[in-house]
Design a protein around this nucleic acid. Structure first.
Length: 350
DNA sequence: ATTCCACGGGAATCGGTGGCAA
DNA sequence: TTGCCACCGATTCCCGTGGAAT
């Protein structure tokens, strides 16, 4: 059923971005100076998750670098320190990576030296930065211009000093969620590329677009899951049931990927919570202590303190893997989807 | 009103890595 | 080669907070 799986990857960039013409124009204008070898203008792009901010930027940068001598760096800011951001920019530019123990100030100096012609740096998920210090460092570099991608522009701008705020709000724009029709167009284009012709109807695509409320990323994943289900059940085209089942499957898939990406501590706590099906904090800690020695036996890691467990638990919540009910000592932990299982062996322990 | 208890922020610390100078 | 230093991520320790239980 799926002719080309890559079409449904998060990283896949379509040749043409549908329904983002205005935004593409906006970016081209801001970057126009770079065509003549001058620094581009800074840009602030905002909008809810999954509406194509990153795709838009990557797509437009690709076009730009095709006919202008511009270097680019794409930084995923989430959880990065200032040094981490600068390091990541250096990584994307030509030259060797500085070693891990180079002080922050030296990294900034290296960056100054390395940027001799126009460079555009994308700070993706900039809300994830602890401070705006990283941006301060970047704008200090001559010839370097930035693209800041964030969810809440007001919150972001309020964190900046006047000079930076003016620089960024010069070319600022937001992306909205797609309408059902627009997203259905996007899904149709993907289906044409990745699925055999006529395997999905326009109506089904609209159902998906509607269900995911205009969030392109989720829509594409749902379409993929619908196609996978059709494949498993050997339908020659996607059925309405494949579609209605696809949403839960897409969510589950994302959760499974998230869970597997986490270290052992997290997965062990997750598994305890899953088996407990509604555990109070006290119970959770007791169970952890009871099995810790055996569970960690033969592993590099060692059991962690209660405080550290709380940090892991917050991470599980952040990743939408568990939920918390109640307050204070009566809060209860529960997994969001009991079908999502951590692939660790606990049966011999519990 | 007081006690209890878990949360979560922040500072200190630990362990591993790698450059650099003696 | 060896010792020293700076980095960083992960962890522990300390503690203020706040709502339920007593």
């Amino acid at each position: 059923m799926i002719a080309d799986p890559a079409v449904f990857d998060d990283e896949h960039l379509p040749r043409r971005l549908l329904h983002r013409e205005a935004a593409v124009d906006h970016l081209s204008r801001a970057w126009e100076p770079a065509l003549g070898g001058d620094p581009a203008h800074d840009v602030l792009i905002h909008g809810p998750p999954g509406v194509g901010k990153t795709a838009l930027t990557r797509h437009s940068l690709q076009k730009l670098t095709g006919h202008a001598d511009v270097q680019t760096a794409h930084v995923r800011c989430l959880g990065k320190t200032t040094a981490g951001v600068v390091r990541s920019v250096l990584h994307d530019l030509p030259g060797n990576d500085p070693s891990v123990n180079v002080p922050r100030e030296d990294l900034c100096i290296q960056l100054q030296e390395r940027v001799t012609s126009p460079v555009i740096v994308v700070l993706d998920e900039a809300d994830g930065l602890p401070s705006t210090d990283a941006l301060d460092r970047l704008v200090d570099v001559e010839n370097l211009s930035s693209v800041v991608i964030c969810h809440d522009p007001d919150e972001w701008l309020s964190r900046l000093d006047g000079r930076l705020r003016r620089r960024l709000s010069f070319a600022e724009f937001g992306l909205d969620r797609y309408s059902v029709d627009e997203l259905a167009d996007i899904l149709e284009a993907r289906a044409n590329l990745g699925l055999p012709s006529e395997s999905v109807t326009r109506e089904q695509l609209e159902v998906i677009a509607d269900e995911v409320a205009g969030v392109a990323r989720n829509g594409i994943q749902a379409l993929r899951q619908a196609a996978l289900r059709a494949e498993e059940l050997q339908h020659d085209r996607i059925t309405d049931e494949d579609v209605s089942e696809s949403f839960e499957r897409a969510k589950r898939h994302i959760r499974e990927l998230n869970l597997e990406s986490l270290p052992f501590h997290h997965r062990l706590l997750y598994e305890l919570i899953r088996m407990g099906d509604g555990l109070e904090a006290g119970e959770l800690h007791d169970q952890y202590d009871a099995i810790a020695d055996q569970a960690y036996h033969g592993r590099e890691q060692t059991p962690i303190s209660e405080r550290a467990r709380r940090t892991k638990i917050s991470k599980l919540v952040e990743y939408d893997l568990i939920e918390v009910e109640g307050k204070n000592r009566h809060r209860v932990y529960r997994v969001c989807d009991r079908e999502v299982v951590a692939q660790i062996l606990l049966n011999h322990v519990i």
